[in-house]
């Protein structure tokens, strides 16, 4: 292995003493605390009472879902690009050939099984980005946990 010698920066006396840095840090954190105390900054949303529904941002990424086209056919042709790109490997596709007597036989290929392991999914949206058929989209819903029926 190649050894890389890292040049450490030269520290001035004040930096070596740490104290000015420490004081500066304390000032910054105190500033944040005071701003919060005065209510000038509001980041956290009180979830069950306050909800995002009204102003869900455009870029919000929820659970991925397959979509159908205007004829009601599932758009996915099981090219498996999403399976390939998926960072946590949440997608498993079993492709199959569309039988010759089907009205969509000319499409040739469809998924026999398309499984998204939602425990693995990290909602990164790579599948949506990579899909050449625009068959998979990330939905806008965020409350997707549930209880067993």
């Amino acid at each position: 292995m190649a050894t890389v010698t890292v040049q450490r920066p030269k520290l001035s006396l004040a930096e070596k003493l740490f104290l000015p840095g420490v004081l500066k840090g304390l000032a910054i954190t105190l500033g944040h605390a005071l701003r919060m105390l005065r209510g000038q900054k509001k980041v956290t949303m009180q979830y069950p009472e306050e909800r995002w529904d009204a102003n869900l941002p455009e870029h919000y990424r929820g659970a991925p879902a397959l979509v159908t086209d205007e004829h009601g056919r599932e758009r996915c042709v099981s090219c498996q690009l999403c399976e390939f790109i998926c960072p946590p490997r949440a997608i498993t596709i079993v492709p199959e050939e569309i039988p010759g007597d089907d009205q969509w036989a000319k499409v040739e290929k469809q998924p026999k099984a398309f499984e998204i392991d939602m425990i693995r999914c990290i909602y990164c949206g790579m599948c949506e980005e990579v899909c050449p058929e625009q068959a998979i989209f990330l939905r806008k819903d965020y409350a997707i946990t549930g209880t067993l029926p």
């Binding site: 099981s78 090219c79 498996q80 399976e83 390939f84 492709p95 199959e96 050939e97 040739e108 290929k109």
Partner: peptide, 8 residues
């Protein structure tokens, strides 16, 4: 045919 993509 259609069994698996070759990159896998």
């Amino acid at each position: 045919r259609f069994r698996q993509r070759v990159w896998f």
